[in-house]
């Protein structure tokens, strides 16, 4: 159990971290980074899994399954499009060389 005040500390420090991580990003990486952060909140998958694992009625199972399907889509889709986008920067960068 995460204590309430500890949770607030985590929240505050994470917020600062997010702000710092993105504040020095060149414009060309804004779209991939938005896509990357979109992938990172795919961690909602573990929450949806826990919720479905504990479901004990049909209604809760249905909602849980919907949640896990959506979360898996967020995580997997977010990863695939981010990697595809960033891959292009690599190949473009290499072609620049001699």
């Amino acid at each position: 159990m995460i204590d309430g005040v500890i949770a607030l500390y985590i929240f505050m420090l994470a917020a600062f971290t997010g702000y710092e991580v993105i504040s020095r990003v060149p414009v060309i990486l804004h779209t991939p980074l938005m896509s990357g952060s979109n992938f990172v909140h795919g961690i909602v998958l573990v929450g949806a899994m826990v919720a479905l694992a504990a479901a004990d009625t049909t209604l809760l199972r249905v909602i849980g399954v919907v949640g896990v399907v959506l979360a898996a889509g967020n995580a997997v889709g977010g990863y695939v499009v981010t990697e595809r986008m960033l891959q292009m920067f690599v190949s473009a960068g290499r072609r620049k060389g001699p």
Binding site: I10, A14, A15, F16, Y19, V21, S37, V40, H41, I43
Partner: peptide, 8 residues
């Protein structure tokens, strides 16, 4: 992860 993304 959620808060980092929220802030970023």
């Amino acid at each position: 992860a959620g808060t980092v993304v929220g802030a970023a």
